[in-house]
Design a binder for these strands. Structure first.
Lengths: 340, 340
DNA sequence: TGACAGTTGCAAAACGTTTTGGATACTGTG
DNA sequence: CACAGTATCCAAAACGTTTTGCAACTGTCA
């Protein structure tokens, strides 16, 4: 730990110039250095525990090997972890590292944070939002390569990735249909976001596809949390023609449905089957019986976002692409045949 | 967006040297520049939208203004978000930015990641672990300033912050005692971690302090998840002398206790009162009635960790300190007077 | 033997800052 | 009028890399 060892120390120790060291370590193919010297230099470098200073090389190369990840409230949700891990893993594999920054809902703060990232010369930015339609990007981003995570721009001008909400709902509802249910209710969301419309659409698609009639009487909506879920489920389950299957907007809502069923003395899945959306371990695996649900692929989306970003940065320019990820069904114990 | 504007562009535009620009922008106090010129330079810089290149200044100053945050599986838990946000907020306020990296359980990967952070010349590292005792730091860290988040070293050689498990349990159990309970059971954890011992200790302390006898018959332990929680709760609630209050190792375990109570036809809190630990919104607020629990202050611990780290980095050397954070009681609806 | 091509190595410039050690002009003093 | 002292500014070096252009050497061929 005497002196910080840099490229000159290696050069001195190996008896060559810094130029040669640099060539030996980086340009594997370059014929500017004798294979023997190269090998020697590498050995010496390893011996000394040489680690290049990335500030210096970033400065010289105009490439920091840093990616910015800016996000809004999404970091307060249980999904944040998976998304960020996906992004990180992908970045790591390609020699990049992530600078994570979150702004809550404050656009002023967000702009300052973006400027900070730019001062650190990030090579690109992953812009993660709670999925709303028509996100508009802050002007600060300028020409910096960017991709949207869990959101999309109205004009489709930059690449983005979101879950396929429609297909997710179809999968969920079809799980009920395949179990034999024909009177399937939905506990929907009142928020005007893509997930609401997409999942409702998927619900209708699945009914249609299997020759079941859509019945507005079987759909209610509320705030997508457990308390509201319990209330609207209570109401729905007390309608004269009680549904035997319930498609819930989210796992949290489904938890409310469990509570409602318990309050009414209905057993799951014998009396009523339930499926959710999200696959929140904390809830889906904890409920009793376990909740059958479709998983939102946050890890995979995080991965995709930085992979795409790095392709943009390192490769030739290509057209923006809007990606949709499908959501697999996770079967636990909340779906069974309908009572007769 | 013609040419990237650097300090020279500002200098040229302001009709002064780069030296003067640098002085004008940084050294507010230095008398090396005439107040008028300083003001002028600043105006010009703002006009041009000048933003210093932190790679360059980092290189020159041997200070990157970057902090590394390395973590293990903790990023897969629901707590990660809050911890990281706390750390980030504190960093941001002092002009630093966070590089987040997670290694799962792979020490090999972790070492490589730490080396990467060092290549980026991070000024210090927050090392976040699931709270185990006697964490040992990877040798790679060398002399880099480090603070431990949610863990502590055996030798107390570096600063660390953990929740005060004992006090947390005392708070929780006292909530039951104050409501009038005298037969209080505990659903404990079988893992050999500080949380297990600390919370058990706190449970005993609280009983002692209020003249209640500790009764081993009222304590069972299991894996700290909902399924196991249900089972051990079922067992405990069927003992001849049924406890009227239950102190649960965690909110997930408490959720299992809710299920057990429901299975036995016991109402909460009329027949049995329950308190947990963690304050996981997803569970505690969703249960019905809401779960009274003590909150683990992850956000605050994250904040403390980087604040302390920055003090170490920027200030004079001080002795390592082991910090314990207290855990406030969050009252919802699961505690009431015991049945008579 | 001399010209030439190919190989291998190096010195030096550049990336965008910060800071040191002057230089210059101005102020007042003896 | 010379002089020290002060205020203001600047040129140049440095941080640790990468890369360009050039030099030295080797061997080949006429």
């Amino acid at each position: 730990m005497a002196t910080k060892i840099g490229i000159r120390e290696v050069a001195k120790a190996a008896g060559v110039s810094v130029t040669t060291v640099s060539h030996a370590l980086n340009d594997a193919t370059s014929s500017r250095v004798n294979p023997q010297t190269q090998q020697h230099v590498r050995a010496v470098a390893k011996d000394l525990g040489y680690a290049p200073n990335r500030l210096a090389s970033g400065l010289r190369n105009q490439r920091s090997q840093i990616l910015g990840l800016v996000s809004d409230e999404i970091t307060t949700t249980p999904f944040a972890g998976a998304m960020i891990r996906g992004a990180q893993d992908a970045a790591y594999e390609r020699g990049y590292v992530l600078m994570v920054v979150n702004s809550g809902r404050d656009p002023e703060l967000e702009n300052r944070e973006i400027r900070t990232l730019q001062q650190h010369q990030v090579d690109g930015i992953v812009y993660a939002r709670m999925y709303h339609q028509g996100v508009s990007l802050p002007a600060e981003l300028g020409t910096l390569p960017t991709v949207l995570l869990d959101a999309a721009t109205a004009d489709r001008s930059i690449s983005s990735v979101v879950p396929d909400e429609v297909a997710a709902a179809e999968t969920a509802v079809e799980a009920l249909i395949k179990a034999g249910h024909t009177r399937i209710g939905m506990l929907s969301n009142i928020d005007n976001i893509p997930a609401t419309h997409g999942r409702l659409q998927g619900y209708r698609n699945a009914l249609d596809r299997h020759g079941l009639q859509f019945n507005p009487e079987l759909v209610t909506a509320g705030v997508p949390d457990t308390t509201a879920g319990r209330e609207i489920a209570l109401e729905l389950l007390q309608r004269p023609e009680r549904p035997t299957g319930l498609f819930c907007f989210s796992d949290r809502v489904a938890m409310g449905a469990y509570q409602a069923a318990a309050a009414l003395g209905l057993r799951i899945p014998e009396d009523v089957s339930i499926v959710g959306v999200d696959n929140l371990e904390l809830i889906a695996a904890a409920l009793w019986p376990g909740l059958t649900t479709v998983a939102l692929p946050h890890y995979e989306m995080g991965r995709w976002a930085v992979t795409r970003l790095l392709d943009d940065i390192e490769g030739p320019a290509t057209a923006a692409v809007q990606e949709m990820f499908s959501c697999p069904l996770i079967e636990r114990g909340s779906v069974g045949p309908p009572p007769d």
